[in-house]
Nucleic acid binder design. Structure first.
Lengths: 193, 193
DNA sequence: TAAGTCATGTAAAAAGTTACATGATTCT
DNA sequence: AGAATCATGTAACTTTTTACATGACTTA
């Protein structure tokens, strides 16, 4: 069973959903830590169903196409529970921007600084979104956030990770950009003299 | 051209290397931000060579198997330079631990806390290693670290990212573990009463 | 003597992305 | 009239991982 399978089970443990909804939930809820496309979700759901971890019910709709609502089974919940405490294979993230940073000495500093400023801005935006989400959770789910068996606590933990990650990432982008800008300014002054 | 191709060009822009060395360099230098295996490196090198971005020379060795030392070409350096300032497609990281956090409400809190303590420790170790590396760079390459056209500056930037990432990640793991431990203790007290 | 390093490859399987395919409703 | 949302799938392609394959030298 792939990680995607467990991601789907994790979402279905909270509520029954269609393939379409699962695809958008992954983008919205765990977006920066997992991603997928619907073309991967539909076959994965079929595999989960074949393994008896998920069932589905067709819900007829008059105005929209019929939908298949998927629900987790007792077996599926048991598999998910086992998986959570299973050792995590430490696969490294693939971050193309860090890769570019490692190679930036060959490129134009002004253009490179612009790239990093752009990403600083992007991650500041994401940080603000996470902070709003976190604040809303603290307001709405105050009592639940201490209950470790509540999905609200788990959601809040993921958001906290998002906040920390985006804050650190944006700061790093700003640091790189500032260094490049200072260096570019220094070499301009030197050539003018 | 894939990101892996540029990662290899980025390493070859600094020094000529064999496929074996490239594989280990990726692990050592950009480990947590990119990873690959030798089985991906050798075909990738062949493709780079077919595209004229890399050349190689066979170096005979008496005590060890002969090696193919790969060097970047002028064309390869030009391609790398263009790539650095190219917009980065914002692919999301795939972090199984965050996924587990999102699902932890279904699992045993004591076991889950142990998992997060283990990862806190792992990232603290990595943080310490990055901090040592960063300090060594500041000592040895002091003057170069301001030169934006120096590979030392680029290496230092990657290490700074590593430090920030590991520090934040370890703190998050500790936060999750502490919450789970507090929650588990509270529910134990409640059941004893 | 067993494990680790140096050294280069191929093959198969799994995971992920992008494109193809269809079709109704709703909003701008 | 065009774009977005809801809704489900398949096909082709790329990327990544894991396993197969070999072999000498060095260190514990």
């Amino acid at each position: 069973m792939s990680a995607l399978g467990y991601a789907l089970l994790g979402l279905l443990a909270r509520e029954s959903l269609t393939g379409y909804e699962l695809t958008s939930r992954i983008r919205e809820r765990v977006g920066p830590f997992w991603s997928t496309s619907h073309s991967q979700v539909y076959p994965a759901l079929a595999r989960l169903e074949a393994a008896g971890l998920v069932t589905h019910q067709v819900v007829a709709q008059s105005d929209r196409p019929n939908k298949k609502v998927h629900a987790i089974t007792a077996q599926g919940l048991a598999a998910l529970t086992r998986w959570v405490t299973t050792p995590v294979a430490p696969r490294s993230a693939r971050d193309e921007l860090v890769l570019r940073a490692y190679c930036m000495w060959v490129a134009d500093p002004v253009e490179t600084a612009a790239l990093f400023r752009e990403h600083a801005w992007l991650h500041e935006e994401r940080l603000a979104a996470y902070e709003r989400k976190g604040a809303a959770m603290e307001r709405e789910w105050a009592t639940d956030l201490d209950r470790i068996d509540s999905p609200h606590f788990a959601s809040y933990a993921a958001v906290r990770r998002g906040i920390g990650h985006e804050r650190e990432y944006a700061a790093w982008c700003r640091w790189v950009a500032a260094r490049l800008e200072a260096g570019a300014a220094a070499s301009r002054t030197a050539s003018e003299r």
